[in-house]
């Protein structure tokens, strides 16, 4: 199951864990990503609160956690190749993996169809 926020983050639920990244729309809006600051494993983040920072040539942008939980892994490949966010936002450009605190929080997010409609309206 994949869900989306209105701030253009995605979350893919894998059992008790959730993989988080930003959408191709967000990556396109940012332009070339040159640095991603990821949290340390073990850090607890709350839903819709800052979890990472992505820097393009032009500006820094905050990335919010689509669900709350504890960070169990981050995408180490982004340190060497931040451009993966532009090349493959939904795949190799993932940011971090969380152990989900409350699956009920997922109900506040958009489905893929809802997100697609939302982006078309922007």
């Amino acid at each position: 199951m994949i869900k989306f926020t209105d701030q253009h983050e995605w979350v893919r639920v894998e059992g008790e864990e959730a993989v988080v990244g930003i959408t191709p729309y967000a990556a396109e809006q940012l332009g070339d990503v040159v640095f991603v600051e990821l949290p340390e494993a073990g850090r607890k983040v709350d839903q819709f609160k800052e979890a990472a920072v992505v820097e393009s040539v032009k500006a820094a942008s905050e990335i919010y956690a689509p669900v709350g939980g504890e960070v169990v892994a981050v995408n180490a490949a982004l340190a060497e190749t931040p451009g993966l966010v532009n090349e493959d936002a939904l795949g190799k450009g993932w940011f971090l993996k969380l152990r989900i605190r409350d699956k009920g929080e997922l109900d506040k997010l958009m489905s893929a169809e809802e997100y697609e409609t939302y982006v078309k309206g922007l």
Partner: peptide, 8 residues
């Protein structure tokens, strides 16, 4: 995602 920008 939020990027600070100014508009007028």
């Amino acid at each position: 995602m939020t990027t600070s920008s100014s508009t007028h």
